[in-house]
Design a protein around this nucleic acid. Structure first.
Lengths: 199, 199
DNA sequence: CAATTAACATACATTCTGCATGTTTCTGAC
DNA sequence: GTCAGAAACATGCAGAATGTATGTTAATTG
């Protein structure tokens, strides 16, 4: 038996407390939404006090932001890990989209990133987070496809936003019970429509 | 001078109170979001008491739902009014999309219908509201285009959801300051990609 | 014109958030 | 090593918000 609270450095204490808070908060935000989760619940589940919470985070929203930010980074990492390198730009986009849907199938991610995130942090903040992680890859894929001459020219920022929104909605509908195959097929049709016919 | 609170039937009283509450709530929800708007503020702006609010609405969320529902109906009405009848299915979709963006340019609608709505009422509830109003028109337009043989075949429900999401995102980005022309052009490219080439 | 119901108004109990103020544990200089 | 100072909490408090319960007034109905 080892002492459960042996001497720990401040660095370790901070890391452990923040991790416990973020894990507990994530679980509750997913189960009941941000608005219906109270800070007393979070700290009880994390095994700390509200004092600790407000010492490490400015307020409840800052804790939520930290959770969302980490989740977005994990989604981006999963996508990057799952899409090694495709032959052409078209296949790369399809593979990336499929990997995105797979990553978003992790329970709670749609609520965190697509429902509560935009409402609590604002769409501008979510855009900024996205651009730092997932959406950047999508935009670069589209730019590459256009540069290759395989894709119809269009304003890249706008096209990135529209396609990202379509993928987001697909993830939401699939989580709500819609047929995944239908959405993957339809996303393929939409993407194919953006490519020039190969003569 | 007339008495400001002359005798009124219950029907009139209810209608006036509900209208005042919904107008005040709408203004505050738009200005500060649902979460940051308190019921004491709403009733003060409406010139009634919290008792009246909780007599007419089950809770704060029910009031929000009523506001959102009416807003969605107005958007659908504006679109219907602005799109008389197009020659072909393709033009009808483009016209409808443009009318949608115009309707969503009314300040606050994106926050009500696209940010707070899904977070507060849930995406399922928003889907149900949409299907009763706007999205139905879009789906019918897509079905017509496919029936005409002008559009590539695809699962209609999924395609409707994806395109609706793209239009939603366009409305959000435009409100956030993005170039409207870019989004209209890009939406045109995406839609055109769904149509079969006319030989 | 009673009796009942609807439309409010008021008061209350509970709960939450953020902060302010204590206490304990580490850290770094001497 | 120890001693000041800072970091990491813990506790208590003030203000406010939500929903409900109860009281009051105005309309409706038999």
């Amino acid at each position: 038996m080892q002492q459960e609270n042996a001497r720990r450095s401040n660095r370790e204490r901070t890391e452990a407390t923040r991790a416990a808070l973020m894990a507990a908060a994530r679980a509750l935000f997913i189960e009941k939404s941000y608005a219906e989760t109270a800070t007393p619940e979070i700290v009880a589940a994390a095994g700390v006090t509200r004092g600790a919470l407000y010492h490490h985070f400015a307020d409840k929203q800052a804790l939520f932001r930290a959770v969302v930010e980490r989740e977005a980074a994990e989604v981006a990492a999963e996508i990057e890990r799952a899409t090694p390198d495709a032959e052409n730009a078209r296949q790369a986009l399809l593979d990336g989209g499929r990997a995105f849907l797979a990553a978003m199938a992790t329970p709670g991610r749609t609520r965190l990133l697509l429902l509560d995130g935009p409402a609590v942090l604002g769409r501008a903040a979510m855009d900024e987070i996205d651009n730092r992680h997932g959406a950047r890859t999508l935009r670069e894929g589209l730019e590459a496809a256009m540069r290759e001459g395989a894709m119809k020219p269009a304003p890249v920022e706008a096209l990135t936003a529209l396609l990202a929104a379509a993928f987001d909605r697909a993830a939401l509908s699939i989580e709500a019970g819609a047929a995944q195959a239908d959405f993957i097929e339809t996303l393929g049709v939409v993407l194919d429509g953006l490519f020039l016919p190969t003569p």
